Amino acid sequence: MAFEPFFHFVKGLQSRLNNSGSSGTYYGQSQQQMAYLRSLEKDKKQREALYVPLNQLEAVVFDIETSGFFPEKGDEMLSLGAVKVCGGVIQKEQLFYSLVHYEKPLSPEIASLTNLSGSQLKDAPPLGEVLSKFLNFVQGSTLVAHHANHEKSFLQSASRRIFRAPFKHRIVDTSFLYRIAEPKLNMVRLDEFCEHHDIPIINRHHALGDAILTAKLWTIYIEMVQRLGCKTLHDVYERVARL
């Protein structure tokens, strides 16, 4: 997003805020929108990340648990977990995890898979609050997820619904790396990749647990693609485009 359009958009939203009176609901929602829009100012840093050496790249590897697979059909986020990685080193003390408020009954399959309960989710913070805190945790880091289409679709849906804006952060799919490093692999599931690389599978189908497992895969593949000549994300994207 160019600076000038962004500036005018924020000015317009600020004007609506100032004229909104004392409506607590509108004010709270607009404050969340402003927090989200401020995060878009980091878009320049996102673009610059394409040329940062992979061994210095600051990434946030994340995962979400959801009530189903289709946000357009009403499925929602239940939890979000993330861990920071710098280059090939997992920052074990820099973690994010939150449940997300959810009122509907969980299907038996999802409850069994995630070990989440309806009572836990009813007491959890609302999605807007969770996403605002998550974006504050991310700052300008590059987002990473395993087979990221699932995460992208839910974040896009939530951003449009809550913040009235598209989700602008780049999300790098781990498949970009393993398609370069191990092009003959015929695997999809996180479990399979962990077993392939002798990574102990702990806290599977827990958002933070899966984020940590994905971070371990990310560090392995970062090293592998560097040995194959990919020094930056830009190199990775160019190589994938040629596959």
Rank of each mutant, 00 (worst) to 15 (best):
I90K: 04
K92I: 05
E93Y: 05
Q94P: 01
Q94R: 14
F96H: 05
Y97P: 01
Y97C: 04
S98D: 01
L99Q: 07
L99T: 07
Y102H: 12
E103H: 08
E103V: 05
K104D: 03
S107Q: 13
T114W: 10
T114E: 07
N115K: 14
N115T: 10
N115A: 13
L116G: 02
G118E: 15
Q120E: 15
L121D: 03
D123G: 08
A124H: 01
L127E: 07
G128M: 00
G128K: 04
E129W: 06
E129Y: 07
V130D: 11
V130R: 08
S132L: 00
S132I: 04
K133C: 12
K133H: 13
L135I: 03
N136H: 14
Q139V: 14
Q139N: 15
G140M: 10
G140S: 14
S141C: 15
S141G: 11
S141V: 03
S141N: 15
T142P: 11
V144T: 01
V144Y: 04
H146I: 10
H147L: 14
N149W: 14
N149G: 11
K152W: 02
L155E: 00
L155A: 02
R161C: 04
I162A: 01
I162C: 02
A165F: 08
P166Q: 07
K168F: 15
I171R: 05
D173E: 09
D173W: 13
D173R: 13
T174V: 06
F176P: 00
L177I: 10
A181G: 12
P183T: 10
M187G: 10
V188L: 13
V188I: 14
R189N: 06
D191Q: 09
C194Y: 03
E195F: 13
H196E: 10
H197S: 03
I201N: 00
I201H: 02
I202M: 05
R204P: 05
R204Q: 07
R204E: 01
A207P: 11
L208H: 11
L208M: 06
D210M: 05
D210N: 05
I212N: 08
T214K: 03
